[in-house]
Each structure stands twice: as C-alpha cells, then as structure tokens.
Amino acid sequence: MLLLVLAVYLIPYPAFSQNIDALQEFFTFYPNRKSVALDSSIYPSKFIAAPVISYSPETNFAFGIGAKYLFKFAGSGEETRVSNMPITFQYTLNNQYFLYSGFEIFTNQEKWVIEGNILLQNYPRLYYGTGNRTEESAEEVYEYNQLLIEPIFLKQMFLEHLFIGGGFRFNHIYNTEIEEDGLLAINRPDGFEGSTSVGAEVAALYDSRDIILNASTGWYLEFTHGKYGEVLGGTNNFNLTRMDLRHFLRVSKNNEDVLAFQFVGRAVRGKSPFSEFSLLGSSEIMRGYREGRFLDRDFLATQVEYRKNFKNSRIGAVAFLGTGDVYNNIDEFQFSGLKPNYGVGVRFKIDKEENLNLRLDFGFGRGTNEIYLSIAEAF
C-alpha cells in the first residue's frame, strides 16, 4: 500500500492511471470473452484476482488470493444488477487456512436472488470469556476447524425490490483445541469441544441499491429466522434471528460523495452451542475491535460512514463512527453501556466500471485499534 501511495505522487496521474488499468487487466479474466465478441448485448463477465498478504499475532504471515467473480446470466439486461461471488483463500506460516465466499446472485430480470455463505477454515479465535465486560488480560487462543454452508433462495414478490424465501444453514465445528486450565476449560460452555448446527431458515430481503459492491443510493433490509434442532441432524435445539438494515444516499448533486448507514441485530434463543454466540468486532462492523473481543448471545450495532469520492480520481477517503454491544438478552440494552468505535480509511478504485474499491481502514475502539485491508466496502 505504501508503494501505491508513493506512486500517486511520483507518477503523473494520466500515466499512473494507465499503468493501473494495465495492472487490472493483468489480474482480470473474461470467461465469456468469445460470446461477447459475437453479441455485444451480453454482459462481459469478469474474474478479478489479486495476491493477498496479511499478518496478525495469532496467524503469523498469511499469503493467498482474493478474487471476485462478477457476471450476469444470459438474457439479462440493464434491469438486472451484476451478480457478485467473492472468493478469498489464505494460508498462514502456522499451517492455518481460510476459504470463504459470500455470494449474491440475481437471475434474469431479478426474478430470483440466490445468496449465502460458504466457509471452510482452520483459524484461531481469541476468547476472553462471555459477556460485555470481559478483561483484555483474560485473552486465550481457541483453535478449531469450521465448515459453514448457507444457501438462501428468494423470489421477487409483491414489490419490485422485495424478495421472500428461505434456505438452510449447516455449521460444523470440529478438531477443537483449547488452552489447558484456560477460561474455556474452566467454563466449559455447551459445544466448546465441537458442535453441529443444522437449521431451516425463512428469509425476506428488500434491496433497492443501485450498485451491489459500492452503493450510492437505495435501501437494503435482510431478515432471517432459523430453527435448529437435533431432529435435523444437529447437536442443539435453538433459534437464530438476524437483521441487517442499510441506507445509502448522495450528499449533494455537486459531488459524488455518499452517506451510508447500517444497523445490525442478532439474537439466539434456546440451548445454542458456544459457536453460535454473537461476536463483537470485525472488518465490517465495529471496526477497531478484534473479532470476538466481546461475546454473548445477542448483538446490536450501528454505524454511519461518509464516503468522499474525488472527481476524476481513483483515490477516495472515508470516515466512520459507530457503536454497539453484546448481551445475554436484548432487554439488557442500556445506552450507557454501548461501546464506541470510529476510524478513517482510504480507497483506491481498482475497477471503474464496477465501482470496485480496494480499502484500507484504521479502526479505533475503547482502548483498542485494528487495521483492515480488503476488496470492496465494509457494507
């Protein structure tokens, strides 16, 4: 990233932009290039890939690839938004791995939306105990393997941007390793030695965003409710409810700046395993806290982000502010107990046509801070 910043100052912008376009082309593959050459009405699908290097105390150095597959089904026109299938793979010097895809696919004329997550990982998680007042000094490492599969199928109904449907979620935790005489060994929460969650979900989605990867206008509201049970092959009986509300609007007609809002809620009821508890802290919301710094059954958080887009430039900047907390029950919510987070970031547009950014964020929380480098916006 430092080399990129230096290049902005040392290379004249037209030449710099041309070099970036050439670099982008080097990492971009067009699976349907021949079909597009024969029929210009076909959307040119793109597979954009780039090497990824990261470091954290838990994993040591990690190397891998980050990619996004952007496409439309044959017969889709301007009325159908671009489908997005991100793929991330990393392998660390500690022999850990991480493979993830969170996808959102639109069929022709957006009659159906297929979304969900696929995750396979052997990655450590930091554990500080359960609750919203755990101490930093209690930190310990929890090793485990995880396989998560969650497809959701939604059909457009009643309103133009409203989709209703359902799916299933399979979350398998295995090969767990805990610290001897640590908090997990003492507290022994249900499922700390491994668990399997299998559930059927109902879902509703309202999505009027203009661009999926980096929206400037529109609303996004997703609600899912899943019922998990031993009768389905799981180890526990419980319910999981999630909500994600976002809004994007242009700040002024005189510029391309965007104001973005998000509110997230998550609640677990019943005898859920430890692996299904809600985590505070991530690269997407409550930036500045390590993922899982606070852990409990329920989670509420909100954030607002100002996105500054400089005219005729690939460079952008953001400032964000948020707050949230975890609870054993939502009725424990108190404004005085909310944890703050804030930060700034820089953006570099790696694909002008798709409005796709490389983002570098510096997040700060209460007595903590984190750095995030990723492709696409946090939300």
Rank of each mutant, 00 (worst) to 15 (best):
V8C: 07
Y13L: 04
Y13K: 13
A15Q: 14
Q18H: 07
Q18S: 06
A22R: 15
Q24C: 00
E25T: 02
T28M: 07
K34R: 15
L38R: 13
I42H: 01
P51T: 05
S54L: 04
N60I: 00
F63G: 00
A74L: 13
S76T: 02
G77L: 00
E78W: 05
R81Q: 11
R81G: 05
L93I: 06
W112F: 14
L120W: 15
L126E: 12
G131F: 08
N132D: 10
I152E: 10
F153N: 05
L154P: 07
K155S: 00
Q156F: 01
M157W: 11
L159M: 13
G165Y: 13
N175F: 01
T176I: 04
T176N: 08
E180M: 03
G182E: 03
R188D: 04
F192R: 05
F192N: 07
S195C: 02
T196V: 11
S197T: 05
V198D: 03
L205N: 09
L205H: 11
D207S: 04
S208W: 14
I211D: 13
L213P: 06
T217Y: 13
Y220V: 01
F223K: 03
L232Q: 11
L232G: 08
R242Q: 12
M243R: 03
L249T: 11
L249K: 12
S252P: 04
K253Y: 13
L259S: 05
F263R: 04
P273A: 06
S275Y: 14
L279C: 02
E284T: 11
G288R: 07
D296M: 10
T302K: 08
E305A: 01
F310D: 05
K311F: 07
R314W: 07
V318Q: 01
F320T: 00
G322Q: 01
G324L: 01
V326M: 11
Q334N: 15
L338I: 02
G345I: 02
K349R: 15
K352Y: 08
E353H: 12
R359D: 05
T368S: 14
I371D: 05
I371W: 14
L373R: 10
